[in-house]
Design a protein around this nucleic acid. Structure first.
Lengths: 210, 210, 210, 210
DNA sequence: AATGAATGAGTATTCATTCAT
DNA sequence: AATGAATGAATACTCATTCAT
């Protein structure tokens, strides 16, 4: 057990160092700017060695995505476990999002990538549904948290709204920053969106508009 | 006058056909997937001819962006000109967004592109501030529309929230579609987010949370 | 005769304006940097019109060469006609070279171009021998001038040496200038080489070294 | 030590084979005619592999230049070390030039390239001054050799004249060859120019002509 | 296990030239 | 006569990936 296990652990450690490098590159240079060469340089391995640990460049990048999903899942599970009263849950969700964006900004970044049509073309159907499943689970977790917070039956849509607003505002902020335009402070923005949605979520729709 | 004018119009038409091709490609294959070759094939011109009408690939793509901004500006100006009562304005904004996404989906798509760090690196400082200016004008238009709809002084942030939620939900929807996961119907989603935000916008923040 | 002649003259004038533009471009941007586009812009004609007056880009550039050859021929003929005593002829040659380089620097420049192997590949055999003939005539003129100046039978080689040293020093000077290195003043250089060659030319070879 | 050293040597050998190919191409097709594709074909590597060994096409071509400069430096140093009497030194310089043109004809060829205005535009200021420095050193070496051979204080200009005449005659010869015109035998030409210059160098200028 | 070497398939852009009007 | 439109063939350089050692 000794040697084999150690090897396994070393291998895992090396995989992680590749992922760390990839994470940094994705944030610094964006998705297409992240070349295998730049990852290799960053983690001080040769380009060829990367392919020892990952089949594809895509596998590296998707691993990053799954990490983000898992990280989010864990945080949401903690909220569920905390069993808080409805009025505190939304605040916790916000704080969680805040944490995610600080610890795994690349995860949020990657959502934008997956939205692009040709981005998912090379991904196998199985992996696709794996992502869909894992990500869907998180939305279900969020819906669970929102039970009692929003009108019954609206949990799913509320979950989408919350995450959608979150990544949309992030995109807007990044765009402004890239263009050299001024942007509102993040906390203010996010705080306000949650308050607004909260008010709406509590009220519920006055009438069906479709 | 006759000949010259007709030529001018023909040239403009040809430019438009290039832009149409580019628009389609951006939607089909995303930003980086849109090669000059693919644009050329699509509009049945040679690659070299593209450079007869546009200096750069960037000039093509940025033209698309400016078109979208101008299209949006026009729609928002109409809302302002309509001089509606506060309770109807938010609905008009929603309908406007709905129109934009139907007529110029690539415009929304491109916002995601501009958020990526290395995306704007090749854009000159002047063009950048031109984009920032034109886009900023639209946010100011939106803020004008929201005057009276939201708590005084909250118009700017409300404008950001509205647009942020819009593009975020769009991203979420696209992602789900790419992954083969099911998504809520768009109208339902958008209707609900506006209702929720509307409720919050009217109430205003209970306290400053920062 | 009126109309046709005027037309002919206008055509010739336009040809000249193209050549003037080409001359300037060759000097400013070198041989390969001289594009048909840049010539067209310079003489305010469309690119296509250039091909009305010249079959090829090469024809334009070669016309420049022939101009230079003719200009040189004329100057050398004047020296011959002046019928000067041997001791003054070399000085006149030097002054002539000085004039050529001032009035037609591109001519000297082009000699470097013709030395490159693939440069003459596209030139037809007839044009090649035309150039060779015209240029050879000038060397014969120079040899005539050197009769009595140098040892009998050495006129041909002396002519080559004079011109060779002239274009070589010019190349050296240009190179230094391009590299930002300092160079001796031209007059000093050229004066000295002529003095040196003159001394040697008068002396004649002490022995055959081959 | 063994493996690493062998690898290093193999790499160097491969670099050399690229340089050899480039050298041949420069001579066959000239500077601009030397494409990365043609180099790659010549040394039977893929184009991409070229960029494994050299950053740029320029780096390849400049390596050729530096090789030529170094080769010349070495030969001149040997003359200096030989400590010959003045009357023999000029002959040695001539023989050296003869050797250079046989072993590194591309070096002489490249001097013509560097003289063209836009040729050096892409070269960084540092590399430029590196070239200027290394080349300048060779001229200083030559000047050292000419001490005692020419009038005191005239060594620098004499060095320029020697090299200038050398590359000028080479250009003239190449031009004639390209045009299919007959040229004098090289040895005769060069021998004569050295004799002539030698006579003048010994005599010195009768008066300052500027 | 780790890597240097090697590469096929791109990728935006340039250029001399042709042709219909 | 003059030109706007159009293009085939190049061109330097990039990138993810494979393979022998």
């Amino acid at each position: 057990m000794g040697i084999q296990e150690r090897r396994q652990r070393e291998k895992e450690a090396r995989r992680q160092s590749v992922l760390d490098a990839a994470r940094t590159m994705v944030l610094e240079r964006g998705f297409n700017g992240t070349t295998t060469k730049s990852i290799a340089e960053r983690c001080e391995l040769s380009e060829a060695t990367l392919f020892h640990y990952f089949r594809n460049k895509d596998e590296i990048l998707l691993s990053l995505l799954f990490e983000g999903i898992a990280y989010t899942a864990d945080l949401l599970d903690r909220i569920i476990a905390a069993d808080l009263p409805p009025e505190e849950r939304l605040i916790r969700v916000w704080k969680t999002y805040d944490l995610i964006i600080r610890e795994h900004p690349e995860y949020v970044h990657m959502f934008g990538y997956l939205a692009r049509p040709q981005a998912t073309m090379n991904i196998s159907a199985e992996v696709k549904s794996e992502i869909a499943g894992a990500s869907g689970d998180n939305f279900r977790r969020l819906a669970t948290i929102l039970k009692g917070v929003v009108t019954d039956g609206e949990e799913r849509i509320a979950a989408d709204l919350l995450w959608g607003a979150f990544i949309g505002l992030r995109t807007l902020r990044e765009t402004r920053q890239n263009l050299g335009a001024s942007a509102l402070p993040r906390a203010r923005e996010m705080g306000r969106v949650f308050e607004m949605l909260a008010a709406g979520l509590r009220t519920g729709p006055s009438e069906g508009r479709e």
